[in-house]
């Protein structure tokens, strides 16, 4: 055993490690250089035949060689692992802007979104949401709401009549107000209810009117409810819906058979802040809907004593509100269900 051979052995091992091109190759080289049958291992085995006084030094030298090789092997392994990872990851490189879309997100309808926004505000104010049928008897749509047969106010509603029963006895509801009666029949006061829904009038369609339209109506019946509460509720609602406190509301006396006193309510035009613009027709106000104190006759028709309870109702068109808020110029554009419109909301 010539210990001087260790130098060339070390030199040769280091060179072979450095020359390894991959982890698998390195593994094979490792076995040849440091394995059980490696020449270096034979040096260890041969230590027994070395003179006792030289054995310690010889052992130290063999270990030094092994250590140097083991250290170099570890470094090289790290190097090669990093290199292989680099190559592998590079092969996986992906341009995230070249991804092909498979499923597109669907969209909830503009009118639904608006309705839900409105419902949410009312729910936040402690209201419950009620829905009623779209085909109604004359009693619910008109008579119970204080439009007796032949009443001139009926001409304000151009009504679609159904071919059922006596002529005119079943109609498509012209407003959401019949649901007021259904709520009164269903629960005792206090009533804090909001009623969205689809309504129908026999009107020629134009940019701002469709024969099929959507209304939402709020009804409060409780002890001690006044017109002041109605105005206060409208103020609160408007501030919440538009998310701002600078909009004023005004009530103008008006006429609806089922409320008295009745009023129309306007809000400061949210687009110009009241200075006058195209949306508000330069008036600074936007007419939003109708409201009033529930007529005593209507309360009685709903089984509620008007001397014990008072109430208010107010409602407005959802489509018109959505139109104003989302810059929709012509409601008829909604009839096509064109995805180029629906996908914008």
């Amino acid at each position: 055993m010539n210990l001087d051979d260790l130098d060339s052995l070390q030199h040769d091992g280091l060179q072979r490690f450095a020359a390894a091109t991959g982890l698998d190759a390195l593994k094979a080289i490792e076995i040849e250089v440091l394995g059980k049958n490696a020449r270096l291992t034979e040096f260890n085995k041969g230590l027994g035949s070395v003179a006792a006084d030289e054995r310690k030094a010889a052992g130290a030298r063999i270990n030094a060689t092994r250590q140097a090789l083991t250290h170099a092997l570890a470094s090289r392994r790290i190097e090669l692992a990093a290199q292989e990872r680099r190559v592998r990851l590079e092969a996986e490189r992906m341009d995230l802007t070249e991804v092909i879309a498979t499923t597109h997100q669907g969209h909830v309808h503009l009118i639904t979104r608006t309705t839900q926004d409105l419902e949410d505000i009312f729910v936040g104010m402690g209201f419950q949401v009620f829905e009623g049928p779209e085909a109604e008897t004359d009693w619910y749509n008109f008579e119970a709401l204080n439009f007796p047969p032949g009443h001139p106010a009926r001409t304000m509603h151009d009504t679609f009549q159904l071919e059922l029963g006596e002529p005119g006895s079943v109609v498509l509801r012209t407003h959401t107000s019949p649901t007021q009666l259904r709520v009164m029949q269903q629960m005792k006061p206090p009533i804090y209810a909001v009623m969205p829904g689809r309504c129908y009038r026999r009107d020629t369609p134009d940019a701002r009117h469709l024969p099929t339209f959507h209304q939402i109506e709020a009804l409060v019946i409780d002890k001690g409810i006044t017109l002041g509460h109605l105005a206060g509720t409208i103020d609160t609602f408007i501030a919440a819906y538009f998310g701002r406190n600078d909009l004023r509301t005004r009530l103008r006396p008006s006429y609806f058979p089922f409320t008295e006193p009745s009023a129309e309510f306007d809000i400061t035009c949210p687009f110009c802040g009241g200075s006058g613009c195209r949306v508000c027709g330069r008036s600074g106000w936007i007419e939003l809907g109708g409201c009033g104190m529930v007529h005593p006759t209507v309360l009685r028709n709903g089984g509620i004593d008007p001397e014990e309870y008072t109430g208010f109702a107010w409602g407005f068109g959802i489509d018109r509100l959505a139109m104003n808020r989302h810059n929709l110029e012509d409601l008829r554009d909604l009839l096509d269900n064109d995805v180029r419109l629906l996908r914008q909301f």
């Binding site: 729910v123 409060v220 206060g232 509720t233 009530l251």
Partner: peptide, 16 residues
């Protein structure tokens, strides 16, 4: 109507 004091009714019901 503009001279009527506006009040928010105190409603203890939970909307849902």
């Amino acid at each position: 109507f503009d001279n009527i004091v506006r009040v928010v009714p105190s409603n203890s019901r939970v909307g849902k």
